[in-house]
């Protein structure tokens, strides 16, 4: 089994543990787009401190990790047009759908939420189609 799959499994387990801590301690669903979006559009003003603390951990701990183990290569695109279009789609889409990979995917599927499962099917389907069109047909990504 390739080592990256094992890292995937271990990292995934840590992600799930993070979600378990946030649920069992704070009583909240760990959804990245909801935590960020609530701060951006003001709907999460009531518990802003908790959201900011979560995001601080999310940004700071990986920064510390890559000082010791270089996992910092993201292979991110250098095409700003693609990045801006992608960012807008992710920002708008996750807020309209009320969740992303962490909220609908990890937290939704694990409680057998129909909404989470349907959302996951649609974003993976859209992602697969996008790869076909923009990589294989148009060659932009």
């Amino acid at each position: 089994m390739p080592i990256e799959w094992i890292y995937g499994l271990i990292g995934g387990f840590i992600i799930g543990t993070a979600g378990a801590v946030f649920l069992l301690a704070n009583g909240r669903i760990m959804g990245a787009s909801g935590i960020i979006g609530g701060l951006v559009d003001g709907t999460g003003r009531g518990n802003a401190a908790e959201r900011i603390a979560f995001l601080a951990g999310l940004i700071v701990l990986p920064f510390i990790l890559v000082q010791f183990w270089d996992r910092s290569e993201t292979h991110v695109s250098e095409n700003w047009a693609v990045l801006i279009a992608a960012g807008l789609l992710v920002g708008i889409g996750t807020r309209i759908a009320n969740g992303c990979t962490s909220g609908h995917g990890v937290c939704g599927i694990s409680r057998l939420s129909l909404r989470g499962i349907v959302a996951t099917v649609f974003y993976i389907l859209a992602g697969g189609l996008t790869m076909v069109v923009f990589r294989h047909l148009l060659g932009v990504i």
């Binding site: 990245a32 787009s33 960020i36 292979h75 991110v76 695109s77 693609v82 990045l83 279009a85 992608a86 960012g87 807008l88 789609l89 992710v90 920002g91 708008i92 889409g93 996750t94 807020r95 309209i96 759908a97 009320n98 992303c100 990979t101 962490s102 609908h104 349907v118 959302a119 996951t120 649609f122 974003y123 993976i124 389907l125 859209a126 992602g127 697969g128 189609l129 996008t130 790869m131 923009f134 990504i141």
Partner: peptide, 16 residues
């Protein structure tokens, strides 16, 4: 919403 998100997720390879 999930469809739009999935398209952006694939374009950049990034989610929130």
């Amino acid at each position: 919403g999930s469809f739009l998100f999935g398209a952006g997720w694939a374009l950049a390879g990034l989610c929130p």
